[in-house]
């Protein structure tokens, strides 16, 4: 019987891990496509914020979460078009444009949220996507609670990752994306439209990031607050590299990040006075660095043309 608390502890951590990993995972899987196409978007944080706000405001006004999600997707496409216009068509430095996006994201969501919501005096909560048990599977002891008592946007990651992996590695579209990121010139000579593929890479990235941002509002917290993304866009960038630019790798890396984040919250909740809580908070970040060092053996190269505009 002594095992029970341990099992409950583990169960609770694993369930939290998946939830904590989900917003990062959405953004990271999308960014895999962006970077594979040769574009680095460090503006994910801003794109996620815009997605969160768009999702929130439409869901709040319409009372429909699905509409909210669609609005987030739309905002992601719009962000992507602007980002691509600057980085692909105008061939501007990608880091510059990304940095601008982070500022614009914080600025526009901050101003609009204040004017239309914070000072309106309305009750601002949404009814979020609720967790539900998958019949039969949810009854499996231990695993049931961990894997099959989540909300729809968490479950969806199980589809998104294999699908992304399939598209990236098994379809002509995915191979073209990879080609323009590795050897844009060669791709060009075999008739692949480099700018167009990069547009697609960017659009997939920003759309997924917006979904990740919207997840925070529609399926996690029930309200938008300024700065709700709290660095997840930056973590997603780290996760892409850490996951060696593959969708499954991104999933592994986000889960790893999630597990250490969940763990630090639980260790704090256990009331350990031996370790200062700030060290626990730093744990997920330190572990990421350590794992990155550990990966040195199977060093994976970044896409060769990453960050280089194509003439």
């Amino acid at each position: 019987m002594d095992l029970l608390p341990g099992i409950l502890f583990l169960q609770s951590i694993l369930a939290a891990t998946w939830r904590m990993a989900t917003p990062i995972l959405y953004a990271a899987v999308g960014e895999v496509f962006t970077e594979r196409s040769g574009v680095l978007n460090i503006g994910l944080e801003g794109v996620m914020l815009i997605g969160a706000f768009a999702g929130y405001s439409v869901a709040f006004e319409s009372g429909n979460l699905v509409l909210g999600l669609l609005a987030a997707i739309l905002s992601g496409i719009l962000s992507g078009l602007i980002f691509a216009l600057f980085t692909v068509t105008i061939k501007a430095n990608q880091i510059v444009v990304g940095a601008a996006f982070n500022m614009i994201g914080a600025g526009i969501t901050g101003v609009l949220y204040r004017v239309f919501y914070a000072e309106s005096g309305k009750v601002l909560s949404l009814k979020t996507f609720q967790p539900f048990q998958i019949p039969f599977l949810g009854d499996i002891p231990f695993l049931g609670e961990v894997l099959f008592n989540q909300n729809i946007m968490v479950y969806a990651t199980l589809l998104v990752v294999p699908l992304a992996s399939f598209i990236l590695y098994k379809t002509a579209f995915g191979l073209s994306i990879q080609a323009v990121g590795e050897h844009p010139k060669a791709a060009d000579t075999v008739g692949i439209n480099v700018p167009r593929m990069r547009y697609f890479g960017i659009l997939i990235g920003t759309t997924m990031a917006s979904i990740g941002g919207a997840f925070l509002v529609l399926a996690y917290a029930d309200q938008f607050v300024e700065g709700i993304v709290t660095g997840r866009g930056f973590i997603a960038l780290a996760v892409v590299v850490f996951g060696s630019w593959s969708p499954w790798g991104a999933m592994g890396a986000s889960l790893l990040f999630g597990v250490f984040y969940a763990l630090q919250l639980r260790i704090q909740a256990m009331g350990s006075v031996l370790i200062p809580y700030q060290f626990l908070q730093a744990l997920p970040y330190v572990v990421t660095i350590i794992f990155l060092i550990g990966l040195t053996k199977r060093r994976v190269q970044s896409p060769k043309a990453l960050g280089v505009p194509y003439k």
Partner: peptide, 17 residues
């Protein structure tokens, strides 16, 4: 709201670009 400045900074960067 002073957060507007972030927005303007972002716009400055994009227009310079």
């Amino acid at each position: 709201p002073s957060v507007l400045v972030s927005l303007i900074q972002g716009f400055v960067i994009l227009s310079v670009v």
